[in-house]
Simulated scan of single mutants.
Amino acid sequence: MLKIAICDDQPDDLSVLRAYVGEFLSQRDTGMELRAFTHPDTLLTAMAQERFPLYILDIVLPMMSGLELGREIRRLDREAQIIYATTEPQFALQAYAASPINYLVKPLDKEQLFDTLDLAVSKIDLAGQRSFPVKTAESLRVLKLEEIVCCEYRNHTAAFTLTTGEELVSRSFRESFAEYAAPLLRDRHFLQCHTAFAVNMRWVERFAKDSFTLCGGKAVPIAARQYPAVRDAYMDYLMGKGADK
């Protein structure tokens, strides 16, 4: 289930937003649900455990502004859709540092909000609903692609690092790592940067000539001979080139 996050510290405004977005979801049958937050800190804490492909943010918030919150969201998730809904029209230009899909001024026009939500939902990458089955020594686990940070080949097994920090190790297999990981690598978010590693580029925090640093601080090597191809593939990904697979 994909989730929409609203962050607004004004109870009346939050109530209106929840009612409007709830009505939109009931009409469109998008398969999404709504989560509401009154403080940026609680939203950022939730983001450590789950992904929100769509955010609706106020500008004036406690402790940090919606502008700062949007930039932090964009740092953590380059593909999330962000909508600003605020009483402060003067921050529209600064808001575009977070690449929002729209900047709406309260009181909200419901039709304009619905049009913006339709556009946002059409842009959401639904790859997070795709999955990868992993046979372990104990059971079969079905992982959502979005929760896989990286996959590492270890002595005829695959070790999956997940966004929760969990490591899941598969049963041994006979095929090559490239063959085993092929379903992952058909998704545009995944890149094999080394004979023994495939990374989910949505979770890359730093790119260097010899390694990726992923969320949680995990470092993954880049094979020297593969560096030009890896660099080009990662740059294309950042620029949004190529169709979703």
Rank of each mutant, 00 (worst) to 15 (best):
V21K: 05
F177K: 02
T163C: 05
S26M: 01
T161C: 13
C150M: 04
T213R: 07
A182R: 10
S176K: 12
Q27F: 13
Q81K: 03
L214E: 06
R51M: 06
Q192Y: 02
L104Y: 07
A85P: 12
D77S: 12
P133T: 00
K106Y: 10
L117R: 13
A95G: 09
R154I: 09
V105L: 07
G66A: 00
R74K: 06
E50C: 04
F177Q: 01
T164P: 05
C7R: 07
P89H: 02
D115K: 13
R130M: 00
L145F: 09
F173G: 12
V21F: 01
A97R: 07
K241I: 06
A5T: 08
A229L: 15
D29I: 00
M239F: 03
D115G: 08
R28H: 05
H156Y: 01
Q94E: 15
S139H: 13
Y84Q: 08
D13S: 11
A97C: 00
E23W: 11
R28Q: 11
A97D: 10
A92W: 11
G70L: 04
Y234E: 14
M235D: 02
L126C: 01
A243L: 06
R74H: 01
R171D: 13
E33D: 10
F114G: 03
P53T: 03
L119T: 12
T164N: 12
L117K: 10
A127P: 03
M32H: 06
I4Q: 09
P11M: 11
R75T: 05
Q129F: 15
Y237T: 06
L168A: 05
L238S: 03
R202C: 11
F132Y: 15
R202A: 05
Q112K: 14
L67I: 15
V204Q: 08
A181D: 08
P53F: 09
A223S: 14
R186W: 04
F160V: 00
Q226K: 15
F37P: 08
A243D: 14
R154P: 04
T213W: 11
A223Y: 04
S211A: 06
